[in-house]
Each structure stands twice: as C-alpha cells, then as structure tokens.
C-alpha cells in the first residue's frame, strides 16, 4: 500500500496543509534573507485571512525596513511619518470603530521618535493592535544604534559597543507600557522557530480578537534578528538573539486581561 504513494498523488490541492496566504501579495519581500519581518508580516496576514476580515482591516506601515509593508500586505494601508503610527491608528479607530486597525513598527519608530505617540495611545487604551518588531537596530538606514540596542552591542553609531554612560540604557518600552491602565494585552514573542511562530500567531490572533471585543490596546512585541545590521548569517543572528536579546527582553506574556502577569 505504501509503495504506490508517489510524489504526484501527494501533491494534490486537497492534500495541501500549508501554503502562502493570498493576503500576502506576490511581490518578493524586500527584507534580507532570514529577517523576522517577513515571518511577522505573514503571520498577521494569516490571522486576518483566518478571521475573514480582509475588507475591514487597515494597517499602518512605519518608517524603517518595513516602510514598504504595504507592498506585501494585501489590505488597505497607510504609510506613517516616522514614529506617528499609534497616533494615526488612534484617529482611524475613533473615526471607524468597527474596523480592525493595527500599526506595524520597528524599535526606532516606536521607542525613539514615536515614544510619546506610543505611550499616549497606550495610555488612552485605544482599541487597536500595535505590532512592535524589536531587532535592536535601525535596519533600513544601515545599522545604527536603536533605543533597544543592548549594552556593548556594536552598530554603525556605536562602533565600539553601546556605552551606557554616554548613550543611555536600552529602553524596555514594552514593560513600560504594560504599566499603563489602558493596555489590555501585552506580550513579547519571537518568530525564529516554528514553536515561537505558533505562539506569535496565537498572540496576534488574540490581539485582533481583543479588538473585536473592544477590550482596549493589545501590544505584541516580536524580538527579531537583523543579520545585515548585526553582521551575521541569519542562523547565527537567531542564535545571537537567543543568547543576548532574550535575557534582556524575556519572551512571554507581560499583561493578560489587563492584569500584569507575575
């Protein structure tokens, strides 16, 4: 019985258990090989697809590597000025409460120039979803130090390693906004292994469900790699991320149903 299983009769449409969602466009992603942005984009679009809300979901792309997110996400999208996406999401959600609104931002966008917008959207408890990809560097502009760059971590603007005395400490923005009463669900995930991808997808799905139930702000941080910025291969970058980023940015839920998780 087993012998006559051939490649041909496995590869039939009805046997497909996984394929690219058509909520991702056919455009080749502009991201570097192995970059977590691509995975995160795909997870969001799979959630939107599975919830059947493509015609009600609006996304906001930041300034940074994912400035071109709207080339890859097959939904109506707006491109934000650097750092301003949470303010834009606020307006969109208030003007159109029944739409699903999410902002997609990097660490420079959300935790440097956009700090005030991030904190105040969270503090107002806007019923939106913020997806925050933290790779500890400004990727698009060529690998400069970011608010989340680790102590001693090299970048094009901290060539001898981040010196806390002159360059300040890495900013744990996610723990910060978790303290604000407006935030309902705050979690930190990753997308470098299948298990983590599944957890991130569950978290993003929960964020969108929270939005449906008007629970308030859901904030999903995705700790990710930057092979070109960190000057490593993707696999090495993921390994370095686990050994260096995770201790400082521990994965897991930080706040669930508006309660801080101990």
């Amino acid at each position: 019985m087993e012998e006559n299983i051939t490649k041909e009769n496995i590869r039939k449409k009805e046997n497909i258990v996984y394929k690219k969602t058509n909520l991702m466009t056919d455009k080749v992603l502009s991201y570097c090989p192995g970059c977590g942005h691509g995975t995160t984009h795909r997870i969001i679009m799979e959630v939107v697809d599975e919830m059947g809300i493509q015609s009600e979901t609006l996304g906001i792309a930041p300034v940074g590597c994912s400035v071109l997110a709207y080339e890859f996400m097959n939904i109506d999208m707006q491109e934000a000025a650097h750092g301003r996406a949470p303010a834009m999401a606020t307006a969109m959600k208030r003007l159109m409460p029944e739409k699903y609104i999410f902002s997609y931002q990097g660490d420079g966008d959300l935790a440097a120039i956009g700090t005030a917008e991030t904190i105040h959207a969270c503090n107002r408890g806007e019923n939106i979803t913020i997806i925050f990809v933290n790779n500890g560097i400004y990727g698009m502009t060529g690998g400069q130090m970011a608010p989340t760059t680790l102590p001693g971590m090299k970048s094009s603007t901290s060539p001898y390693g981040r010196d806390i005395v002159t360059m300040g400490n890495p900013l744990k923005i996610t723990e910060l906004i978790a303290q604000l009463p407006g935030t309902y669900f705050v979690t930190r995930q990753a997308v470098h292994t299948p298990a983590n991808v599944r957890k991130t997808k569950k978290a993003i799905r929960k964020a969108f469900e929270n939005q449906k139930l008007k629970k308030g702000l859901s904030f999903v941080e995705v700790v990710s790699n930057c092979s070109s910025g960190w000057k490593m291969t993707p696999v090495q970058a993921n390994k370095w991320m686990v050994e260096n980023m995770f201790p400082f940015y521990p994965l897991g839920d930080i706040k669930v149903d508006r309660e801080l998780v101990k």
């Binding site: 087993e2 299983i5 590869r11 497909i16 258990v17 996984y18 394929k19 192995g34 795909r42 292994t193």
Partner: peptide, 22 residues
C-alpha cells in the same frame, strides 16, 4: 511528514506543504 515547521518559519513563505494519510 508534512508537519509544516519549515513552511511556517520561512520568512519569505516560499514553501507549500502537502500531507496524506496512508
């Protein structure tokens, strides 16, 4: 075994996975 691990971790989503019971 068609577990989809490779497909879901692929940043560029280039893998389609098939599975049949035998």
């Amino acid at each position: 075994t068609g577990c989809t691990n490779c497909a879901i971790v692929c940043p560029d989503g280039v893998i389609t996975v098939y599975r049949v019971k035998i």
